[in-house]
Simulated assay, not measured.
Amino acid sequence: MSQAKSGDTVKIHYTGTLTDGTEFDSSKDREPLEFELGSGQVIAGFDKAVTGMEVGDSKSVTIPPEDGYGPRNDEMVHEVPKTALPDDLDPEEGMGLQARGQDGQVFRLTVISVGDESVTVDANHPLAGQDLNFDIELVAIA
């Protein structure tokens, strides 16, 4: 059997959990995830975990933040005046928002608190700073 290597298109089934056991994503009950190894389509630790696997192999891995969504950065938490938000928006804790930077780049934000005059938003990826546990099964190599 051949081993998965950079440049191969692979199909995998996976379940991702946090260290407390909370499941944050899974391909069960869906089609397998398909991606090209080494192309940057998935987090670096995921690429590393699948590289060298053979079809039918299963493994469990823990991916540290530096190979996942990076460390948490407190400088990415901002207080925004409510006047800067659309008039029809009623912000709530946990709500996802999008903002566009001056260069046109879109940022995903999560509302972490709502005050009388302002809203505090977090631009960190929700999984930043966390160890990610994955159970992975290689289904196919194309």
Rank of each mutant, 00 (worst) to 15 (best):
L18I: 05
L18D: 09
L18P: 05
T19K: 14
D20V: 06
G21W: 06
T22N: 10
T22Q: 09
T22A: 10
E23Q: 09
E23P: 07
F24E: 09
F24Y: 13
F24W: 13
D25I: 10
D25F: 13
D25L: 15
D25K: 05
S26M: 03
S26P: 10
S27Q: 08
K28L: 13
K28F: 08
K28E: 14
D29R: 13
D29C: 09
R30H: 14
E31H: 15
E31K: 15
E31D: 14
P32Q: 12
P32W: 08
P32A: 12
P32F: 15
L33I: 08
L33D: 10
L33P: 01
E34V: 14
E34A: 14
F35Y: 15
E36D: 09
E36R: 06
E36P: 00
L37W: 00
G38V: 13
G38W: 02
G38D: 13
S39K: 09
S39E: 13
S39G: 05
S39H: 06
G40V: 12
G40I: 11
G40Y: 08
Q41V: 04
V42W: 02
V42K: 02
I43C: 12
F46E: 11
F46W: 09
F46P: 04
F46L: 15
F46S: 03
D47R: 01
D47F: 04
D47Q: 09
K48T: 11
K48R: 14
K48D: 08
A49W: 07
V50Q: 00
V50Y: 02
T51E: 13
T51W: 01
T51N: 10
G52P: 05
G52Q: 04
M53A: 10
M53P: 00
M53I: 01
E54M: 12
E54S: 15
G56C: 04
D57Y: 08
S58W: 00
K59G: 11
V61G: 01
V61N: 01
V61E: 05
T62E: 07
T62I: 12
T62F: 04
I63N: 03
I63T: 13
I63E: 00
I63R: 04
I63M: 00
P64R: 11
P64T: 14
P64D: 11
P65I: 00
P65F: 03
E66F: 07
E66H: 05
D67V: 00
D67N: 06
D67H: 06
D67E: 14
G68N: 06
Y69G: 12
Y69N: 02
G70V: 07
G70L: 12
P71K: 13
P71I: 07
P71G: 14
P71Y: 06
P71T: 13
P71E: 15
P71S: 11
R72S: 00
N73L: 02
D74I: 03
D74F: 06
D74W: 00
E75K: 12
M76K: 14
M76P: 02
M76E: 06
M76H: 07
M76G: 02
V77A: 05
V77K: 06
V77R: 09
H78E: 09
H78A: 11
H78C: 02
H78P: 01
